[in-house]
């Protein structure tokens, strides 16, 4: 069984929000990538942005500046 680590997961109500998140995070040099939403989470658009826990503050700040509203921000063993 692969060992799981705690990760930050951000979900969105639409694919456009998810795409915008990916574009802006990568443009800002922040870590993370889009993954299929794990079954345990009820999420809108089917995509979640997965990133290391220590990037949480920077990612949320970037989202606030960009006007991106997360559907959920959770920490999860993945």
């Amino acid at each position: 069984m692969r060992e799981k680590t705690l990760q930050l997961l951000i979900t969105f109500s639409s694919t456009v929000q998810a795409m915008s998140m990916e574009a802006q995070a990568h443009a800002a040099g922040l870590p993370g990538r889009l993954i299929p939403v794990p079954t345990a989470i009820t999420a809108g658009c089917g995509l979640a942005y997965k990133a290391p826990l220590d990037s949480r503050a920077q990612l949320l700040e970037l989202m606030a500046e960009a006007g991106l509203e997360p559907e959920q921000v959770v920490e999860m063993l993945l």
């Binding site: 694919t15 456009v16 998810a18 795409m19 915008s20 990916e22 574009a23 889009l34 993954i35 299929p36 658009c45 089917g46 995509l47």
Partner: peptide
């Protein structure tokens, strides 16, 4: 297929749609 899964080709399709939007 944009919006169907999160593998490379699916995300590439979605990125194209996003860029054009």
């Amino acid at each position: 297929n944009a919006g169907r899964g999160a593998h490379g080709p699916a995300l590439a399709g979605l990125r194209t749609a996003y860029q054009v939007r």
